[in-house]
């Protein structure tokens, strides 16, 4: 049942008939497609050259990042090999665990809240939405005082939630689970026709069943997007991570890499560059893997299909 309405989000892909693919040639090809390749090429150069610079530095022997402009002047794997003598790999695993759990938690809690905003009408709904948006704007600069005290108190009671715990860091990240993400999802939830839930309810489904078995499935693209965004933001956060994770074996990549270059007197750009290149890989892979969902997944507000 209800398949006709389900197709709404799905119908968005492939809105051009496939047969148009073949017909375009010559000048028309240029005006419709060719220039796009040119622009894309330029865009890639623009996006890529600083990264090329880092990759080149990661293969350079010694030297400083800012002091050399000769791309790939020397090529050696020393920096990569040297990573094994550091705690780099445990930072990688910490980061992956923390970012993945945070992303899962954010998706689940954010989706639940977005569902409520989208489907229920209750007092304080609009104010609630606005408050969520606003509270995230508080400058985090001084958070270190408050977060530190909070975790200190929690740590006395439950050590696992105290300072220097990866779980505590995840908790702090999850504190931001509602927020901008809720907005993204709220918009997408609105694009799922209400008739669908109503039909299901008429058939006797509860709100929980509607949510778990119907809605979540239809909004999977936005779940992927929010998951990715959350993953990236906890992946590259270093202010909170540096504050909370005090001992070296608990650090995340961002904290560890920062440590390598923070003290300019002992800055270690070679290691940093090699570590940075490796640490960018999971994000890129994740993006490639999820791309199908991401592209279909971002939409909001009044674009109701």
């Amino acid at each position: 049942m209800a398949t006709h309405t389900v197709s709404a989000p799905a119908a968005r892909r492939g809105r051009r008939p496939a047969d148009q693919h073949t017909a375009v040639t010559g000048r028309r090809w240029w005006s419709e497609l060719g220039w796009r390749y040119v622009v894309a090429g330029l865009a890639i150069v623009y996006a890529g050259f600083p990264i090329l610079y880092v990759i080149s530095a990661s293969f350079a022997s010694g030297g400083t990042l800012t002091g050399s402009n000769q791309l790939f002047g020397t090529i050696t794997g020393d920096n990569y090999a040297a990573l094994n003598d550091t705690r780099f790999w445990s930072w990688v695993s910490n980061t992956l665990v923390i970012a993945t759990v945070t992303a899962l938690g954010t998706v689940l809690m954010g989706a639940a809240a977005a569902y409520a905003f989208s489907r229920f009408r209750f007092t304080g709904r609009r104010v609630g939405l606005t408050t969520l948006l606003v509270i995230q704007m508080f400058p985090q600069l001084l958070a270190f005082v408050a977060v530190f005290l909070l975790l200190l108190a929690l740590g006395d009671v439950v050590p696992a939630l105290g300072l220097n715990s990866r779980l505590a860091l995840i908790m702090v990240y999850l504190g931001g689970a509602l927020g901008v993400n809720t907005f993204l999802m709220y918009g997408f939830f609105n694009t799922v026709p209400k008739e669908l839930d109503e039909a299901a309810k008429i058939d006797g489904a509860t709100h929980a069943q509607v949510y778990w078995t119907i809605i979540l499935r239809l909004v999977s693209p936005i779940l992927a997007v929010v998951g990715l965004l959350s993953f990236i933001s906890s992946f590259s956060d270093f202010l909170l991570a540096k504050l909370i994770l005090q001992s070296e074996e608990n650090w995340t990549l961002a904290v560890g890499l920062y440590q390598w270059v923070a003290d300019r007197l002992s800055a270690n750009w070679g290691l940093f560059a090699a570590g940075a290149v490796i640490s960018a890989v999971p994000v890129v892979l994740l993006f490639i893997f999820l791309q199908k969902y991401i592209v279909g997944g971002l939409t909001a507000g009044s674009v109701k299909g």
């Binding site: 665990v97 759990v101 050590p159 105290g162 220097n164 715990s165 990866r166 779980l167």
Partner: peptide, 11 residues
């Protein structure tokens, strides 16, 4: 505490 993940509490 939602995650069953083991905690690395400060030693």
């Amino acid at each position: 505490d939602p995650e069953p993940e083991e905690s690395a509490a400060a030693e």
